[in-house]
Design a protein around this nucleic acid. Structure first.
Length: 189
DNA sequence: AGGAAGATCTACT
DNA sequence: GTAGATCTTCCTA
């Protein structure tokens, strides 16, 4: 199983968001593998996209969104770290938010981190980061490094994709930019 | 110093 | 299922 490379992320954010569904998010922690299948994502753009961190133009907080595709971009909302992957060519701000995963390996570990069981382990953007011990220290590293502590592997699985408006945003665009695998219990809500 | 932020938890009906 | 409280950073004034 191969890794997703920089070219994969160097595409429109909504395309990457859709194609990330069914792929594997891998976290290495003290030589242990914690992994999950990505089941829900959202795409965020730049100046034209009100809920985006890049909406108000280039700023220190969101500068990674202008950076190299494939970089991990972490920020905090309401006391939760959210995991994003930068997309599109350098200079064009955009990113994909990973909103939910289905645990594959290391479920025990995740349950301990979350002090929850079942779908509540990882059915939300703040939940999966807590389950996998992902925090600001990963901000700015590449998700394409198979020797790193956090990366995304390819999969050739065909998944049934559904879309909806993004969750929790004040002003959404007309386009539907949330994507999820239909009938998966780890999709949030 | 204040407020906003793309969320989550708990405690109810 | 919904309502309201509350978790923590970073930006702007």
């Amino acid at each position: 199983m191969d890794i997703l490379d920089q070219d994969f992320y160097n595409q429109d954010a909504s395309i990457v968001a859709k194609q990330l569904l069914g792929k594997y998010l891998i976290r290495v922690y003290n030589n242990n593998i914690i992994s999950g299948r990505i089941v829900e994502t959202e795409a965020y753009y730049g100046e034209q996209d009100p809920p985006s961190r890049a909406y108000k133009g280039y700023n220190n907080f969101a500068k990674l969104m202008w950076d190299t595709p494939g970089k991990i971009f972490i920020y905090m909302v309401h006391a939760h770290w959210l995991l994003n992957i930068v997309t599109m060519p350098i200079g064009i701000p955009s990113a994909v938010l990973i909103r939910a995963i289905e645990p594959l390996e290391g479920l025990d570990f995740m349950e301990v981190n979350r002090t929850k069981k079942g779908k509540n382990v990882s059915n939300g953007p703040g939940k999966l980061t807590k389950a996998m011990l992902i925090d600001k220290s990963f901000d700015g590293i590449m998700a394409t490094n198979i020797n790193g502590d956090l990366f995304i592997k390819n999969s050739y699985e065909k998944v049934r994709i559904k879309s909806s408006h993004r969750i929790g945003v004040r002003k959404d665009l007309k386009r539907k930019l949330r994507f999820f695998i239909s009938d998966n219990i780890f999709v949030s809500k």
